[in-house]
């Protein structure tokens, strides 16, 4: 059984931003943010480390749509939440050939947000009807749309995030 630190080390090599978060408040252990061209590399690393894909979804914020991936591990309690930004009209690489389960999740994300996954073999509407392909029901209206800073975790309890930050620093020093 691998420990979480090993996963952190493995992911650090990918030059993605990675930080440990407070599981009790956030429900996952590692937060990853990456550029849209790092997605495949990251997914391969996750597969090599024997993670499974929990879901793929997106979140419509200013300035760009965030695609959210969540992974978890079968034997180590380690849940990873990864984000990649994809500007409107841009494409993001598919991971459906790495994690086959992502096939449907990506189709669903295309249905709801109109995110285009490059290299997806079958990006047809899945949950929506074929003639509703342009509906994109989960895109926010201009009035509702928030800036990305407004929905970031700010840590309303000062004690805990500081401790978490320290832990992360310690981890960083160890590595």
């Amino acid at each position: 059984m691998k420990s979480m630190n090993q996963f952190v080390d493995a992911l650090k090599r990918l030059s993605v931003q990675i930080s440990e978060v407070d599981y009790d408040r956030r429900g996952y252990h590692l937060e990853v943010s990456m550029a849209d061209n790092q997605v495949r590399e990251f997914a391969k690393a996750m597969l090599d480390n024997e993670f499974y894909l929990v879901f793929v979804t997106a979140n419509h914020v200013k300035p760009a749509i965030e695609v959210v991936y969540q992974f978890a591990h079968f034997s180590t309690p380690c849940r990873v939440c990864a984000r990649a930004c994809v500007a409107e009209g841009e494409k993001i690489s598919t991971i459906s050939d790495i994690f086959h389960g992502a096939d449907w999740h990506e189709r669903e994300t295309k249905d709801f947000f109109g995110v285009n996954f490059e290299g997806h073999p079958n990006l047809k509407p899945l949950l929506l009807a074929e003639d509703d392909a342009d509906l994109k029901p989960l895109l926010k209206s201009e009035k509702m749309l928030k800036n990305v800073e407004e929905i970031r975790w700010q840590g309303e309890k000062p004690a805990k995030p500081a401790a978490a930050g320290k832990q992360a620093e310690q981890k960083a020093e160890q590595s």
């Binding site: 996952y28 849940r79 975790w153 700010q154 840590g155």
Partner: peptide
């Protein structure tokens, strides 16, 4: 609901 994301499985 405070800003930020959280997950529950």
């Amino acid at each position: 609901l405070p800003p930020g994301d959280s997950s529950f499985s």
